[in-house]
Design a protein around this nucleic acid. Sequence first.
DNA 1: TTGAAAGCGCTACCAC
DNA 2: GTGGTAGCGCTTTCAA
Lengths: 334, 334
Amino acid sequence: MTSKRNGRATLADVAAAAGVSKSTASRAFSRPELIRPENVERIRRIAAELGYTADPRARALSTGRTANIAVIVPDIANPFFPPLVRAVESGAERAELAVFLGDTDESASRERVLVDRLEKQVDGFVLASPRLPDAQIRELAERVPTVLINRDIPGVHRVLVDAATGVREAVELLIALGHRAIAYLAGPPESWADQQRRDAVVQAAAHAGLALSVLELGRPSYEAGRECVGSMIATGATAAIAFDDVIAHGVLAGFATLGREVPADFSVIGCDDVLAATTFPALTTISGGSAASGAAALDTLLALIDGEHPEQRTAIAGHLVHRASVSAVRQHAR
Amino acid sequence: MTSKRNGRATLADVAAAAGVSKSTASRAFSRPELIRPENVERIRRIAAELGYTADPRARALSTGRTANIAVIVPDIANPFFPPLVRAVESGAERAELAVFLGDTDESASRERVLVDRLEKQVDGFVLASPRLPDAQIRELAERVPTVLINRDIPGVHRVLVDAATGVREAVELLIALGHRAIAYLAGPPESWADQQRRDAVVQAAAHAGLALSVLELGRPSYEAGRECVGSMIATGATAAIAFDDVIAHGVLAGFATLGREVPADFSVIGCDDVLAATTFPALTTISGGSAASGAAALDTLLALIDGEHPEQRTAIAGHLVHRASVSAVRQHAR
DNA sequence: TTGAAAGCGCTACCAC
DNA sequence: GTGGTAGCGCTTTCAA
């Protein structure tokens, strides 16, 4: 008679078994200092015997705190996101929060649906590269603690990977190596990261008097990278900066398929540094701090949930990581 | 006076604004066929104006259904899991379920904690490559709908990637190409997948009279693969089958570092087919159906939640995918 | 130090 | 068709 239908013991069961009221049983967990120590111990022991664990939903209903957070990403299969999610997970674990994961498939409408479905059962959101319009994000952030990653909306808490510096370093390197015409392989235009990188390339190239072609690849994928090689070469470029490592990796493969050699025939630079040295040749790339941005976002979110006032804008500097996919332009290519 | 503290409209607000009772307002959403059509429409319109969305926690408390599921993985950064998680996400989206993600960091104790924290707020679990003892998984599965991926516990619903067939095909291929000594680069011994693959290699090798060395790499990582190359060569093997693609990828890099060529100097075969043709040379591997296993697990879980009796054991056949990392053994290597 | 009782927001049973 | 009401399991005043 102490256990309910399916083995789940409830607080009432514990209270009954311990011969105390629900209030006392509840306090044995939440405010033990208010209860006679011997009782605290006894109640907890009995609870353990009954296999009791508090029901988070019921608790949330009465406290208003869910002990859950949500992280929303456009594509968990894109290698930029798993380390980010992992960092969020590990921080959440420390704070004893459970985490919802939402994959929007790069779609603003799915993002909207996910956010709505989750809003009532979380204490906060981490939106990684959100595709929602500024206004909607602002509204959300007003209602529930929200931290953005790679989306720059003034007034909303956000952590930004500053690739601009790295992009400038990349352009300078290419110039120093004799390149005079380069290509930028653009990602999703809705993405803040792409806008930032694109702008940085355009400015750096203009500043240096470098010829620049921008190729729109849309969704960043290995295939897109591999398939753009032909048109990229046609632009007369001798080097490319890709929106991300995935595209750059595809480009590497495209050249291999053509029997051309990177970096001897062409130099390629990625972005994010999520493939590290796992490509061949090892990719020169702009480090993006996938994990670091996740960790920073979680810290900010935790502070927000605790009612503190963390820094609104956190920048993570991205720098060029020099590996093997870049070299001096070939003489005869001039 | 219709809106509560922070903008969250409640069902009571909607009811009041519409001049109906909470019951009617509730039914306008859950059982509209019981309500006069014009009222349904009016109530819904008013709800929308008020920005009302049902609170899933409260609903769960009274219905016992949470509309949430959880997927637990050992390491979301391991490329086998993102496609799996993505498949689960997309199926869940169709069923209008929200999904919790748990990353156990390959640790049974963290898995325990996660499962306990989540149990009360989900309708079911997908446990991918769980590290928990059989008994604990059985108990869990008795209490809440649970589907395992790559863990074979009789009596519990599970989807298994049958790599054994692929492993045999791999061994046969290597024999046909003249290899007489091979290595198996083993993964986490607690993992069912490793046990299955290891057994299959051992048996196939014994059956064929092939010399076999097993190297214990523990946690499957790129680094582990790269660093084992030396000792692997020392075994006298001319080909290796790796526990997974990540290790195999590392091995490829290890050879490149040594200035040795794959497949000319050594053949390597991976497992899972999650890197597809993105390695260089393109990896010959045993397809693992990462996404397929996620999709199958979700289908089973959905059926379970709906009180149906789906197949308890789903096998996904893994087959050898022939790419470029395997060739005939070198003559002088004999 | 402890207990009774009032909700949190929603659904479902039972009347009208 | 619609409304009243009793919970779901927990926390939290308010009294005792």
